[in-house]
Amino acid sequence: MDSLQHYGAQLLAGAGLTLKLTLGGYLLAALLALPLALLLYRRPRLLTPLARLYVSFFRGTPLLGQLFLLYYGAGQFRPELQALGLWGLLRDPFNCALLTFSLNSAAYQAAILLGGLQGVKAGEMEAARAYGFRPVQLYRLILLPNAYRIAFPALGNELILLLKGGAVASIVTLLDLMGQTRRLFSQTFDFTVYCYAALGYLVITSSLVWLWHRLERRLMRHLQPAAPPPTQRLALSH
């Protein structure tokens, strides 16, 4: 317990940075994933190959390699980035990690959303068209809500995977939870700090899973069978 009191402040600061990177990257990825999924779903002739290439690249290469490519590769184009006003953004390791996590997660979220879009029943779409829904109404009221309901559990899994995979951010000098753990171990050689870090990841992951399940139950509450009336429950108990 003495060691936990000694390391607690640094580990909590690292956990805060880990959450900031994970949630920020996930939300930015969600903004990019939707148009990507719609491109893959609608299959326009010119843009579909680019969308497929993007998804294939970020799903087919390791997150660590993508982070190195952006963090160290950006320096090779410093004059061009300065001319565009982007060098101040990309020279910061936090911004590079956040951008890498966003681009990576967007590819996975787009693939998940594509499965949700393809899982919407054709009869629901036909019924909406029969009622005279316009294309925008069809997407906003029928297709997208149902696609997100179908994809919601898998999107939660992607959040957890991003949280755990995001430990690679410590490689580019960021003092997230794993970065703080590595720094403390290098100073003290106390192996218990890794145990506390593992416990910290477990607490964060469990909390996110609990919250996601709560959101899922709320989102799917209309699909749950209604409880029988009291008289019927009494009869069933006999």
Rank of each mutant, 00 (worst) to 15 (best):
Q82G: 02
D2N: 13
T205H: 03
A128Q: 01
L36C: 05
D92E: 15
R218I: 06
L21P: 11
H213R: 15
L23W: 09
P135C: 04
P230W: 08
S3M: 03
L234R: 14
L27N: 03
K121E: 12
L11V: 08
D176Q: 07
S186K: 00
P79I: 09
L23V: 15
Q118A: 15
L23Q: 07
A197E: 04
L163I: 08
S237N: 14
L98G: 02
A106Q: 08
T100Q: 09
F152C: 05
P228K: 03
P135I: 02
A106V: 03
F152D: 03
L144R: 10
T22G: 12
A15S: 04
R214Y: 10
G115V: 11
L103D: 09
T192Q: 14
S3K: 12
Y7M: 05
R52K: 14
L86C: 03
L50N: 02
F57R: 08
T192W: 11
A107C: 10
A226Y: 03
P35W: 01
L163T: 06
H238Y: 11
I160P: 10
Q82E: 15
Q137Y: 06
Y54K: 11
L215F: 14
F191I: 12
L63G: 01
Y131D: 06
M125N: 07
A197I: 07
S237M: 15
L162H: 11
N104A: 09
T100N: 11
L19Y: 07
A227T: 15
R233M: 05
A111M: 08
L63H: 09
E124C: 04
A83E: 04
Q137C: 05
A97N: 05
Y108G: 12
L17C: 05
G8S: 01
A147M: 00
T205I: 07
V203N: 10
H238I: 00
I150K: 13
I142Y: 09
G166Y: 04
A9M: 06
M1W: 01
E158G: 02
N157M: 07
I204H: 04
A74K: 01
G123V: 04
G25W: 04
P62R: 13
L234Q: 14
L19H: 07
W87E: 01
T181F: 01
L40Y: 11
L161K: 09
Y41E: 03
Q5S: 13
A74Y: 02
L223F: 05
Y71I: 00
Q118Y: 07
M1K: 09
T205F: 00
Q118M: 12
S105N: 10
T61I: 07
L215Q: 15
L17Q: 14
G116M: 10
A107E: 04
L46N: 09
R42G: 01
R140S: 14
F191R: 08
S237R: 15
A127Y: 06
G73H: 07
F152T: 07
A127L: 12
L69P: 11
T205A: 14
Y131R: 12
P230L: 06
L21R: 10
L177S: 10
T22Y: 12
M125A: 05
L114N: 09
F94G: 01
A226F: 01
D92I: 01
L175R: 13
G179V: 00
Q224S: 13
G132M: 14
P229V: 01
S102Y: 00
P79H: 13
M220F: 13
C96M: 02
R140L: 12
R140M: 06
